[in-house]
Design a protein around this nucleic acid. Structure first.
Length: 481
RNA sequence: GGCCCCGUCGUCUAGCGGUUAGGACACUUGGUUUUCAUCCAAGAGAUCGCGGGUUCGAUUCCCGCCGGGGUCACCA
C-alpha cells in the first residue's frame, strides 16, 4: 500500500519550530517511500481560531521548503461528514446523545474530585435516557453533544512504531465527546474520520498524543476500520530545562528563527537530529541526504529531546561558511527583503560588497550580525581618544604611530594587501615600535573595532583615500582631546 | 492523584551480553595569527539514576525504587 502521511496543524496561532520538526519527518518519510504528504487544517475550535493563521502556517512551511502533495483540506468544510459518522456510531450503539450542561459537568467533576476519585470521568447520566426521552429532547431543540461509549474494562493494546506495545485499560478513559454542541467535531472524531477517508497510513505526531491514541483505536474498531500505523515522536524541550521551549531563552516560533537570520537548510539540518540519528558520525545533512537515510526505526524512544541553541548557531555558521560568497550574498539579500531589513551595504557596488563579504564570511554565524560586522566598510567609524590610545597607553605614541602611517601610506601608490603588509612591517622595524600596539592602533583608527579581518585586507578593500581620511580624522581626535 | 512513557560525559547522542563506553556542541590548552574568526592538534569530562536478580559475564535482559516528562476538557 502506498504510504500517506500528513501534517495537521490547528490555526490557533504562530507555527512552532517543533511543528516544523514533525512536518519534516512526515515529509521525509513520504519522499523516501514515494508516498504522499498531505496537509489538513484542523480548524474545529472556533473559540481559539485565528483569522489568517492557516495561511501563515502554509507560508512558513513553504519557507522551510516543505511542500505538500495534497490538500490543504479544511475540517470546517467537512462538518456534514463528521456528523454523519457520529450518528452512525449512535445507531450502532457505540455512542450516545448527552444533554448535560457545562454547569452540571463542572459540578460533577468537583464532587468527584472531593471524593478523591482516581480517574474523573463523565457519570453517564445521559446514557440512562430512554430512546423516547432522547427524541423528545432533540425535538425540543435542546443542545446536545454526542459521546463515545467507551467499553468497560477492556485493555486497548496497540503497537507504536517508536514506543512499542502500549496498553491502556478503558476504565481509565472518559466517554469522549465526539461531536460538540455547535456541530463541530472534536479532534478525536475528526482525525479518525479524516485519516481513514484520506487513506492516511502513518500517523507521525508528538508523543503528547500517546495517551489519547487508545481513544482513536476504539473509534476505528467501532467503525470497523483498520487503524493506521502510529509513530510518536519525542517532544522538544529547552536545553537543560526539562520543559518546553520558552521565549525566555530565545525564539520559539518557526518564523522567528528565519527572521534572526538562520538559514532554512541549517535549521532543517538541526531539526533532523531532534529525535533521530543515523547511527553514524555524519551530522551535516542536506534534505536529500536526510530523505535517503531517514527511517522510523532510528527515531529516538525518549520523551524529551533538548533544543540546543548553541548547536543550532554552530550549524548555521557551518552552512554560512560552506556557501560561495555569491550564494551567500543572494541568501542575505533575500533575507533582508523578506524581513524588511536594511543592509549597510545596500546600494554599494556589488564587486565591493562581495569582496567585503568574503572577509567576514567565516566570522558570521547569523545574518543579523552582518550589519555590525561590515559597517566600517561602508560608514566612517565613531572614534574616541580613549579607544585610540588603548594599546599605546599614551597620547604621544598614538599620535606618532598614526601620523607615521599617514606619511607612509600617502607615499604608497601600489594599494595592495601584500605591498601594504610589507611596507608597514618595514616601517615598524625601522621605527622600532611594538608591532601589536602599532597595528592595533591602526586597526582601531580605521575601523573603530578591535576585532576585524586581517588589517591589510581591510585597508586594501577600503582604499587609499578613505584610509587616509580616517587616519587624519583619528589624528584630529587625539589632537583635540 | 490515576494512567502512559522515558532515564549513557555539562548538553544531544552511538551502543542493541564481552568496547580502552565512540562522536558532536560547549569548555580548557597548544599551533597558525598584530586582533577576532576559521582551521589543525591535544585535553578534561560518564562509578552508563539506585538496589536487587538472570548469566561465566551486564550500560545492554527482568523486577522494585527513585527521578523526569506527558496526559486526564464541548483544546488540539
Amino acid at each position: 500500500m502506498e504510504v500517506k502521511v500528513r501534517m495537521a496543524p490547528s490555526p490557533t496561532g504562530e507555527y512552532h519550530i517543533g511543528h516544523i520538526r514533525t512536518a519534516l519527518y512526515n515529509w521525509a518519510y513520504a519522499r523516501k517511500t514515494g508516498g504522499t504528504f498531505l496537509l489538513r487544517i484542523e480548524d474545529t475550535d472556533r473559540s481559539r481560531f485565528i483569522e489568517g493563521a492557516a495561511d501563515k502556517i502554509m507560508d512558513v512551511l513553504h519557507k522551510y521548503g516543505l511542500a505538500w502533495d495534497e490538500g490543504p483540506y479544511y475540517q470546517s468544510e467537512r462538518l456534514d461528514i463528521y456528523k454523519k459518522y457520529a450518528l452512525e456510531l449512535v445507531e450502532k450503539g457505540y455512542a450516545y446523545y448527552c444533554f448535560c450542561s457545562q454547569e452540571r459537568l463542572g459540578e460533577m467533576r468537583k464532587t468527584q474530585q472531593a471524593q478523591g476519585v482516581p480517574t474523573i470521568k463523565y457519570d453517564r447520566h445521559c446514557l440512562a435516557l430512554s430512546p423516547e426521552e432522547v427524541s423528545q429532547k432533540l425535538q425540543a431543540g435542546e443542545p446536545y453533544v454526542i459521546r463515545l461509549k467507551v467499553p468497560d474494562n477492556e485493555d486497548i493494546v496497540f503497537e507504536d512504531k517508536v514506543f512499542g506495545t502500549i496498553s491502556i485499560n478503558t476504565n481509565d478513559i472518559d466517554d469522549q465527546v465526539l461531536l460538540k454542541s455547535d456541530g463541530f467535531p472534536t479532534y478525536h472524531l475528526a482525525v479518525v474520520v479524516d485519516d481513514h477517508l484520506m487513506n492516511v497510513t502513518h500517523v507521525m505526531r508528538g508523543n503528547d498524543w500517546l495517551p489519547s491514541t487508545p481513544k482513536h483505536i476504539i473509534l476505528y474498531k467501532a467503525f470497523g476500520w483498520e487503524s493506521p500505523e502510529y509513530v510518536h515522536l519525542p517532544n522538544l524541550k529547552e536545553k537543560g530545562q526539562n520543559r518546553k521551549l520558552s521565549k525566555r531563552f530565545g525564539s520559539v516560533y518557526a518564523v522567528e528563527f528565519l527572521k534572526e537570520g538562520y538559514l532554512p537548510e541549517a535549521i532543517m539540518n538541526f531539526l533532523m537530529f531532534l529525535g533521530w540519528n543515523p547511527g553514524t558520525e555524519k551530522e551535516i545533512y542536506s534534505l536529500e541526504e536526510f530523505v535517503e537515510d531517514f527511517s522510523i526505526e532510528k527515531i529516538h524512544k525518549t520523551d524529551l529531546v533538548a533544543f540546543d541553541r548553541e548547536k543550532l548557531l554552530w550549524i548555521n555558521g557551518v552552512y554560512i561558511r560552506n556557501k560561495s560568497v555569491e550564494e551567500l550574498l543572494l541568501a542575505l539579500n533575500q533575507w533582508a527583503r523578506e524581513f524588511k531589513i536594511t543592509l549597510v551595504s545596500e546600494g554599494a557596488d556589488e564587486a565591493y560588497v562581495l569582496q567585503v563579504l568574503r572577509l567576514v564570511q567565516e566570522r558570521m554565524k547569523l545574518f543579523n550580525e552582518y550589519n555590525s560586522l561590515v559597517s566600517y566598510f561602508y560608514l566612517e567609524p565613531e572614534l574616541s581618544a580613549e579607544m585610540l590610545t588603548k594599546y599605546t597607553k599614551d597620547m604621544i605614541t598614538a599620535k606618532k604611530t598614526i601620523s607615521g602611517f599617514i606619511e607612509l601610506f600617502s607615499r604608497e601608490d601600489n594599494w595592495e594587501v601584500d605591498i601594504l603588509d610589507k611596507v608597514s612591517h618595514d616601517y615598524i622595524a625601522r621605527e622600532d615600535t611594538k608591532p601589536k600596539a602599532a597595528f592595533m592602533t591602526l586597526r582601531i583608527a580605521v575601523t573603530g573595532s578591535e576585532a576585524t579581518p586581517p588589517i591589510f585586507d581591510v585597508l586594501a578593500a577600503i582604499g587609499k583615500d578613505k584610509t587616509l581620511k580616517r587616519l587624519n580624522n583619528a589624528l584630529a581626535i587625539i589632537n583635540s582631546s
